[in-house]
Each structure stands twice: as C-alpha cells, then as structure tokens.
C-alpha cells in the first residue's frame, strides 16, 4: 500500500497527427475524443499504475510531431526510460519517418533506453498502408518492442503499457502476449530488450 513506485519517464515521438496524444489520453482516462488539439511543444501527464504487485509512476511526455526539438529542448529525451515511437498504419510516410525518430533516440540515449514501435489507428481497416509484418521487421531491425493499437477503439492500449512496465522491470508478460492474437513478439527483440534492461538497471544503480 505505502510503496512509492519508482518513477519512469516515457517520451512519445512520431509524426504529426499519428495519435500520440490519443494513445496517452486513452491510457490515462480510458476514452477517445475527436476534439484533441495539435500538441505544441511538449505536454506532460503522469500516472501511477500497478503491475504484478509493484507500483510504477509513469511520467508521460507528449511531444509535437512536427517539432525537431534538438535545438530547442536538448534534454527532452535525456533521462528517459522508454521512447514510444508511434506511426499511423494508414500513412506509409509516417511509418517511413519512424527510422529518423529511432535514430534520434539512439543518438541521444544509446542503448540505455527501451524503444517501443507502435502502429496506431488499426481501426482504419480499409485505409491500411502498413502491414503488421512490416512493423515487426522494422522493430526487430532496431531492437525495439512492437505493438499495434487503436486509441479510437481502445484496442491494445492497456496491453501496450503493460508491455512497457514489464520491460521496465526486466520481465516479459508472457500471459499478455499470448492473449493478444495480433501481437507476435519474436526472440530477437526479447534478447535486445533484456540487454537494454540490464544496462538500464546498471544505469539506475548509478
């Protein structure tokens, strides 16, 4: 009860309008609203969540998709535990641009950060331009976790954050993985994830 969970900083990156704010809001308040305004600069939300009898204080840093913060806010990726890079499955260009986001995170944090690739807007079935396989392959290529979601439909939002908290404490939520048909995590991402977690722990001890 009185356990003050460890604080983790999650940075949400991705192109303009892919649904970063919608994912966060759905996780925070369990609802989807079509009235979200464009994020200007950075927005901050925090939420405490419990996972396997442990408490996690998540600091969610929502960013403007159009922004290149490197020259304005150099430290926004610094000290982050997780970088969630979102693309729109109905926008091929947003998926292509995720490479730049991932490289930017790696340049800033090296391998001391867990990268999660998220394909959002899966409810747009007829407009899909990026397949699950493409997403999985890119995640594997960069040593990142992968998951597809739909903030509008509320699909896979909580499992996404469970996956993140599981990775944060160095354990995989096998049960969650099995229950989701659309999620297929391969061995290699897991191995990279373990390596990142190990370094993360050593970083925490410092």
């Amino acid at each position: 009860m009185g356990d003050l969970g460890k604080g983790y900083k999650l940075v949400f990156l991705g192109d303009q309008g892919v649904g970063k704010t919608s994912i966060i809001t759905c996780f925070m308040y369990g609802k989807f609203d079509t009235s979200y305004q464009a994020t200007i600069g950075i927005d901050f939300l925090s939420k405490t969540t419990r996972y396997e009898d442990r408490t996690f204080r998540l600091q969610l840093w929502d960013t403007a998709g159009q922004e290149r913060f490197k020259s304005l806010v150099p430290s926004y990726i610094r000290d982050s535990s997780v970088a969630v890079i979102v693309y729109d499955v109905a926008s091929k260009q947003s998926f292509i641009n995720t490479s730049k986001w991932i490289e930017e995170v790696r340049a800033e944090r090296g391998s001391y950060v867990i990268i999660v690739l998220v394909g959002n807007k899966t409810d747009l079935v007829n407009k899909r331009q990026v397949s699950i396989e493409e997403g999985e392959n890119k995640a594997r290529e960069f040593g990142a976790l992968f998951m597809e979601t739909s903030a509008k439909a509320g699909f896979n939002i909580k499992p996404l954050f469970c996956k993140i908290t599981s990775a944060l404490q160095g354990n995989e939520a096998v049960s969650w993985t099995k229950q989701e048909d659309l999620v297929d995590v391969n061995l290699k991402p897991l191995m990279f994830s373990s390596q990142a977690n190990h370094q993360q722990e050593s970083n925490c001890s410092c």
Partner: peptide
C-alpha cells in the same frame, strides 16, 4: 523545469 518546456507553447501561440 527548464523554461522552454512550457515557454515554447506559451510564447508561440
């Protein structure tokens, strides 16, 4: 709390 974290939005709009 660096001022540009919130100053960016306050000033731009």
């Amino acid at each position: 709390v660096e001022p540009q974290y919130f100053g960016l939005r306050w000033l731009r709009v």
